[in-house]
Simulated scan of single mutants.
Amino acid sequence: MIELSLVGIGTGNPEHLTRAAIRALNEADLILLPRKGAEKAELLDLRRMVCADVLSTDVKLAEFDLPVRDSRGEYLGRVQDWHEAIAQTWAGQIAAHLPDGGRVALMVWGDPSLYDSSLRIAARLGADGMALRVSVVPGITSLSALTAAHAIALNTIGAPVIITTGRQLREGGWPDGADSVAVMLDAGSAFDVLPPQGLYIWWGAYLGMPQQALVAGPLADVASRITRLRAELRAAHGWIMDIYLLRRN
């Protein structure tokens, strides 16, 4: 039996870890650390830093290369193939390091439930016949980190919020049924497709990290600034994680 813990670790600040997250990491027999290429080495370094900061037991750490998603073909098909490749990589690492079973932990950026596919990938392991029990330790999400950094409420009084992706915003425009829209996984300035009049934006990148960057204001006034700053930060660090909240009126 493999006990797999998906541990939300927040958005780059070791102080984001809950006591439950620290306990889960210390109770593991193995912690898997994904490598995402030289340009995202900071993400691996942050996971190493978390381990050095919170581990008080002798837990084995195993680094592995995360498969790269194919850029060709239909989007959902590419994602499904990528998830299958990751599942096979996880299975190989678990078999190599824990042939007799045990407890495995994976540190998930933010929270495993919000625009993260770790739970779907873990389900593939069980479907492939692995004796597997999955548990989730929730973490601070990039969305809650964004609203905290700007000291704002996510919603207006009694009103809904739609959480979507940059691709969906670019292809479909403003979603129906909400005055507030949170946008994640934006490859770059999807808000440009929207008429900016009457929209306000709160944007944040590298939330919780020393290099955190924040911009807020009427979209018509700050859109070009965000686009320019985002490009500069990506060039400087080799990668970027950002999120923003848009609100009408």
Rank of each mutant, 00 (worst) to 15 (best):
A182E: 01
V136R: 07
M130V: 08
L33Y: 07
V7K: 04
P99L: 04
D81Y: 07
A213M: 08
T11H: 13
Q80P: 00
G110E: 11
I22V: 15
P112A: 09
S71A: 15
V7A: 12
R47C: 06
G188E: 12
G158C: 09
T57F: 08
M130S: 11
P138L: 12
V215D: 00
S117A: 15
I240P: 01
P160R: 08
P14V: 07
E27N: 12
S113C: 12
A123Q: 14
L55T: 00
Y244E: 06
I163F: 14
A220W: 02
L66E: 15
A153R: 11
V79G: 03
A131W: 12
L125T: 07
W239I: 02
I157L: 15
E74I: 04
W82I: 04
L55A: 07
S117G: 15
K40A: 15
P160S: 11
E27F: 05
A20Y: 04
A148T: 10
D116C: 07
L219I: 00
Q80V: 14
H16S: 05
G173A: 05
M209T: 03
D186M: 08
G102Y: 02
A41R: 12
L229T: 03
A127P: 06
V183L: 10
V108G: 03
V193R: 09
A123R: 15
V7F: 07
L55G: 03
K40C: 13
H83F: 12
E232I: 00
I86L: 14
L125H: 06
G12N: 06
R69I: 13
I31E: 13
Y200G: 00
L185D: 04
A131D: 15
K36W: 11
E3H: 13
D70H: 11
T57D: 04
V54H: 10
S135T: 14
S113W: 06
N26K: 09
G110N: 09
M130T: 05
A148Y: 09
W239G: 03
L132K: 07
L6P: 03
T156V: 05
R69Y: 08
P112I: 07
P218Y: 10
I31S: 10
A216E: 08
Q212E: 13
N155F: 05
H97F: 04
L199C: 07
M49W: 13
A21E: 04
L98K: 01
N26A: 11
P218T: 00
G10A: 09
G126Q: 15
R228C: 04
F191G: 01
M241P: 01
P195Q: 05
E232V: 01
D81I: 00
D53R: 14
I9R: 09
Y244I: 04
A91K: 10
P195T: 01
P175L: 08
L207D: 07
W109G: 08
A236E: 14
T147Y: 09
D65R: 04
P99G: 03
P14L: 09
Q88M: 12
V59M: 06
A96D: 11
I157G: 12
R120C: 14
I31Q: 11
S118E: 13
D221C: 00
M1I: 05
